[in-house]
Nucleic acid binder design. Sequence first.
DNA 1: GCCAACGTTGGC
DNA 2: GCCAACGTTGGC
Length: 154
Amino acid sequence: MAKKRYWLVKSEEDVYPIDTLEADETTPWDGVRNYEARNLMRDEMKKGDLVLYYHSNANPPGVVGVARVASSPYPDPLQFDPESRYHDPKSSEEDPRWILVDLAFEEKFHRKVSLQEIKEHPELQDMVLVNRMRLSVQPVREKEFEVIVGMGCR
DNA sequence: GCCAACGTTGGC
DNA sequence: GCCAACGTTGGC
């Protein structure tokens, strides 16, 4: 089996917080409509990879726990649903445009690791989270993952 | 294939 | 709620 990789996903706290993921146990990571994020889910994420779970639009924003990639990639069903805000009329079942994976709850931190702490930590300066806005699925280095989990479990 | 207009993300 | 960043769309 390939070496495990690490990721970070953003979820709006008032839309799908980690407590809801914990209650659901597993959920399709639907509604992602950014090609770079899609490519990561489609091509790079592997079942069993660990994922930092970040609350955006929170006060303060930050990492609140860990999820796990729980499926192979498959088409986002919402793109075919005309009722959904994520409906994509340019996509088709034969040639689906939007691909996702399932995420499963892994653990909730004892405390939130805030964006501000991450920005201030010397070992986390190169994180995509710190350097780029607007990417809701992003890769994380093993060291960065360990540092943040260490902070959240302390 | 350029680029202005537009829409969304997401911190503050 | 504001607005900067920045990805996407569509006219040309």
